[in-house]
Simulated assay, not measured.
Amino acid sequence: MNIANFLGSRGGPASTADLGRAGFNRYRIGLAVAEGTIVRIRRGYYALPRETSVFRTAREAGGLLTCVSAAPGYGLWTLVPASKLHLCVGHRTVPPGWVTHGRCRHPRHPWLPLAGLADVLIHALRCLPELQALVMVQCAVGRGDISLAFLRGKLGGNRNARARSVLDLVIPRADSLLEVLANTTFVRAGLRVRRHVQIPGVGEVDFLVEDCVIVETDGESHLEPRQVKKDRGRNNASLVGGYLVLRFGYDLVVHHPEQMLAQVLELLEQRRRGAFQP
């Protein structure tokens, strides 16, 4: 493998030490620079000539990506992509518009310019709007990458009360960020909610609200023809089994949760009034 392929396989720039551990000595590095195969972006760091990733930007700034800017590097759920670059840079100055975070206190990513997962989540909990932080934490906790107990232990004191309140919204299992957001909406409305309930003849449903309304949160996969056919069958089986069914897609769950909630409440109210009785 040549140096260019090595950098491409790692997803971004590398240090002289990293290249050395991969078997590239200083002579080969210098030769690659002279040939234009790689470029030196700052002392001790090299990248591909046309690379424009946030990893290169972080290396050039001498910092580590964190908060929502580090979420893609760890494969974490996000509601919206980072509009600004979030970095840990120590005492260095950064261009206007970047967001700087405090020092990193946990082991960083082994080769990418990413703060450690613990720091990334702690920074997100302190920095981002509640639901944006929640989906990142839910993803990491749900995969078993980190524990709620560990995060709580790092967020003591009055100044972290808001961050701890976000942790209270994390659920044991969520198959998508839509489930996390819908659950938060229902629970805060005071509804009695059961998740991932097995319904005879139907299978597992996302939510059973007040023991009578099935709520399903549908991502893009539910638009595929085979899934549409399957969902239609599940809807019919649910109604035959005595349950009411509502399905909500990404736009309502993420951008208009109040409309989703209003429909659930209206259906429950109609049922209370006997609208669905024989």
Rank of each mutant, 00 (worst) to 15 (best):
R43S: 11
L155R: 03
V228Y: 12
A70S: 07
N160T: 02
G44C: 02
P49D: 09
G73R: 00
H255E: 06
R50T: 15
A47G: 03
R21L: 13
E51N: 07
C212T: 15
E204H: 11
T100G: 04
L177R: 05
Y243S: 03
A14N: 01
M1W: 07
V187L: 14
V213F: 14
A70N: 00
G30C: 08
F248V: 12
E224G: 11
R159D: 07
R226Q: 09
L167C: 02
S15F: 01
V193H: 08
T78A: 05
E220I: 15
E179T: 15
A61D: 00
L85I: 09
R247T: 07
R194G: 13
T52H: 00
H256R: 15
V253T: 10
R28T: 08
P113Q: 01
V193I: 13
R271C: 15
F248M: 12
C88I: 06
R108W: 05
V94H: 06
A174L: 05
L76V: 13
L85Q: 00
L239C: 07
D211N: 09
A163I: 01
I29A: 06
H255D: 09
R50L: 08
G190R: 08
L208I: 07
L19F: 02
A133W: 00
R59G: 14
R173S: 12
